[in-house]
Amino acid sequence: MSRTVYLNGKWLPEDAAKVSIFDRAFLMGDAIYEVTCVLDGMLLDYAGHAARLRRSASELGLTLPLDDDALLKAHHEIVARNQMQSGLIYLQLSRGVAERDFVFPPKDTPPTLVMFTQAKDVLNNRAAETGISVALLPDLRWGRRDIKTVQLLYPSMAKMEARSRGADDAWLHEDGFVTEASSATAHIITTDGRLVTRDLSHALLAGVTRASVLELAQSHGIEIEERAFTPDEARAAREAFITSATNFVVPVVRVDDVVIGDGHPGALTQQLRQQYIATQRATALAPA
Score class of each variant (00 low, 15 high):
Gly266Lys: 02
Ala17Thr: 02
Asp15Ser: 13
Leu71Ala: 06
Ala47Gln: 12
Gly9Cys: 06
Gln118Arg: 13
Asp68Ala: 15
His75Met: 03
Tyr46Pro: 01
Leu53Glu: 11
Asp175Pro: 01
Val150Ser: 10
Asp40Ile: 03
Arg126Glu: 15
Ala245His: 06
Thr4Asp: 02
Lys73Gln: 12
Asp257Tyr: 02
Leu200Thr: 09
Ile78Met: 01
Leu64Met: 12
Thr185Ala: 12
Gln85Glu: 13
Asp108Gly: 02
Val250Gly: 07
Gly176Asn: 03
Asn8Asp: 15
Ser244Trp: 02
Gly61Met: 10
Phe26Asn: 01
Gly87Thr: 03
Gln218Leu: 11
Ala181Trp: 04
Ser58Trp: 05
Arg95Asn: 08
Pro110Cys: 05
Arg165Tyr: 06
Thr243Lys: 10
Leu43Lys: 07
Met1Asn: 08
Lys10Asp: 13
Ala288His: 10
Ser182Arg: 04
Trp142Cys: 03
Asn8Glu: 10
Pro105Leu: 04
Asp108Trp: 01
Ala127Glu: 14
Gly41His: 06
Thr63Phe: 08
Asn125His: 11
Phe26Thr: 03
Ala286Cys: 07
Tyr46His: 12
Gln151Arg: 12
Ser156Lys: 11
Gln118Phe: 00
Val259Ala: 11
Val208Pro: 08
Ala186Asp: 02
Phe104Ile: 00
Leu60Thr: 11
Gly87Trp: 03
Ala203Gly: 11
Asp23Pro: 03
Thr283Arg: 15
Leu113Arg: 01
Asp108Phe: 01
Gly131Lys: 06
Ile189Thr: 07
Thr179Asn: 04
Val79Arg: 00
Ala181Gly: 15
Ala50Glu: 15
Ala16Arg: 14
Thr179Asp: 01
Gly41Met: 04
His202Lys: 13
Asp262Ala: 10
Gln275Arg: 15
Gly166Ala: 11
Val35Met: 08
Val252Arg: 04
Phe248Lys: 05
Met42Gln: 15
Leu64Trp: 00
Arg238Val: 00
Gly87Phe: 03
Ala186Glu: 02
Asp192Phe: 10
Ser2Lys: 14
His202Thr: 14
Asn8Tyr: 05
Leu136Thr: 14
Ile188Ser: 09
Asp199Arg: 12
Leu195Asp: 04
Ser2Phe: 10
Phe177Ser: 11
Ala31Met: 04
Val250Asn: 04
Ala50Asp: 12
Gln280Pro: 01
Asp45Cys: 13
Pro65Ala: 09
Ala98Asp: 07
Phe177Ala: 13
